[in-house]
């Protein structure tokens, strides 16, 4: 286990410590658990609002990233993989965005998660922005796919904080189904 992240005097602590991960898949290459794991890089960990902005300001925006890149912000100790014990019974809300919306929506998503706006206790595991050729995808992972009250609350909060057009399609997928069909989206 990694050492605890220190919150310095004057900083505003977050409810949880988070890890910032980056991954990029070679286009056209079949995604497997093994190469996904190998491509996953831990960039930073943060436990306060100030530490988050310090890293985020130096991070590229989704709009600047090449296709097939993913940024993951997960609670410390949870690896952004379906197989992680926190994720294995979980699932995710998937929001597909047309190009041009991702940077704003992603920032709103992160701020809602760090600020504990979802009000679902420990259910949220993390969030991912996936930059693809024709669209960008935000997904929010939670622990218990079968808990429809929680997943409903997450959907409603997501709709509110992302401020999406009412026509935006949102889809829930269990990680178990993703494992079975070997595809994330």
């Amino acid at each position: 286990p990694l050492p605890q992240v220190e919150v310095k005097p004057g900083e505003h602590p977050l409810q949880y410590t988070y890890s910032l991960w980056f991954s990029r898949r070679a286009p056209g290459k079949q995604a497997t658990t093994q190469n996904y794991d190998q491509n996953l890089q831990l960039l930073a960990r943060f436990a306060s609002v100030e530490q988050f902005w310090g890293y985020y300001s130096r991070c590229l925006r989704p709009v600047d990233l090449p296709s097939h890149s993913d940024i993951h912000i997960f609670k410390d100790g949870i690896k952004p993989m379906w197989e992680d014990s926190a994720n294995k019974n979980g699932g995710k809300w998937i929001v597909r965005l047309r190009k041009g919306l991702a940077s704003r929506c992603w920032e709103n998503m992160i701020l809602a998660m760090l600020g504990e706006q979802f009000m679902v206790g420990d259910e949220i595991c993390g969030a991912v922005i996936s930059v693809r050729f024709q669209e960008d995808i935000i997904s929010v992972w939670n622990r218990t796919a079968q808990d429809s009250i929680t997943t409903g609350k997450i959907r409603d909060t997501l709709k509110r904080v992302l401020n999406l057009p009412p026509t935006t399609v949102m889809e829930y997928k269990t990680h178990n189904d993703s494992l079975k069909d070997h595809s994330s989206f």
Binding site: H12, P13, L14, E50, G115, V161
Partner: peptide, 21 residues
């Protein structure tokens, strides 16, 4: 237990904090 909740506007203000580097 108690949760540490922050509003979006507050978090956005903190972006320019001298401690945020």
């Amino acid at each position: 237990g108690t949760r540490i909740i922050y509003e979006r506007t507050f978090l956005l203000q903190m972006r320019n904090s001298p401690l945020a580097k």
